[in-house]
Design a protein around this nucleic acid. Structure first.
Lengths: 177, 177
DNA sequence: GTGGTATGTTGACATCGTCTACATATTATG
DNA sequence: CATAATATGTAGACGATGTCAACATACCAC
């Protein structure tokens, strides 16, 4: 048999897990199910991921990479909207990335992926007086808005307009009051 | 025996679950463990909560009530800092409240509790030109900042100063650009 | 007091993460 | 090319969990 070894099981697992994540949510995402979908035994994943958390970490890192790409293509003004759009289009992935289930301290590649995405935001604030503060504030704003929208705390008929209006009401000044 | 009935099992379960939540995290929080801590059998909780999710919903609602209290006592300027302080002091509760594990649509008392906390923020922006937008932006800002701090995306020695600076850099204008 | 209802218990089941032992393919080494 | 070492996959087990069904006990209304 040449089917004893899978070929690229890690990638297959990530694909299967990613699909399950977006389609049935994080709670339904199990190592055993990913293994089943990849057509291997329930213990095969352990050859590539030490435990479930490690698989989640890899999925989250993927997410940060995707997010970074989405942001990098955008001119400063629309970057915020791109951030929110990503969250709304990949809600489960987004929640996984920021749900606190995977401690960044334990997964350096996760931290790097996150920092990479953050860099895109920092770039956009280079010319402002205190860029790191402005970038932090901007990230906080768009992130909070995304999260609260996902949770259903804002119920508006026209979501896109709402996002634009909320982001438009904010200015980044140079001195604290 | 007079110990067959517990007395106030729902409250005891919430107390036990709340303790476990903050001390050992959401993952360690199980119905069976809460039952054990309350000194009842593993199935007793089902007389008061239809399932695990319902217990989480009750814990989250408690959280929104706590948050609302913390906010209501504050003058506008310090309300944001109070929000962040709550998140940092009760990280696991905060994550439960916003982790998307409990859909608000399914638990009206959760929605009410959340709206109650939001009201405190809206009050603070009454005099501004478009209060609902300003309040939404402010909530987004402080919420995102809390979340990102919890996740460890900002690593600063003086957290409190950082929070003040980030919040201080933002202005709420009247017209979008 | 007696019957109905609320509350609690016992036992069972499927699923999950994870461990240990074993099997098979791939690679390196002579 | 043969064989040893290693990487990868499998089989079976264990304890924990959420949940269901059946049963037991306490409380309350009449």
């Amino acid at each position: 048999m040449s089917t004893y070894h899978h070929g690229d099981l890690p990638a297959a697992l990530l694909r299967a897990a990613g699909r399950t994540l977006e389609r049935r949510g994080l709670a339904a995402l199990s190592l055993r199910e990913a293994a089943r979908r990849a057509g291997v035994s329930h213990n095969a994943p352990y050859r590539h991921f030490p435990d479930r958390e490690a698989l989640l970490a890899a999925l989250a890192a993927e997410g940060f990479a995707m997010l970074g790409e989405r942001l990098r293509g955008q001119p400063g003004r629309e970057m915020g909207e791109a951030y929110v759009r990503f969250a709304l289009q990949q809600p489960q992935r987004f929640r996984l990335m920021f749900g606190g289930l995977v401690p960044m301290t334990k997964y350096p590649e996760l931290r790097n992926a996150a920092q990479g995405a953050y860099q895109a935001l920092i770039e956009a604030f280079k010319e402002l007086p205190r860029p790191e503060l402005a970038a932090a504030a901007a990230w906080s704003l768009v992130h909070g808005l995304s999260q609260l929208l996902l949770d259903g705390h804002f119920t508006h008929t026209d979501r896109e307009a709402f996002v634009r209006d909320v982001l438009g009401v904010v200015r980044f000044a140079q001195r604290a009051a």
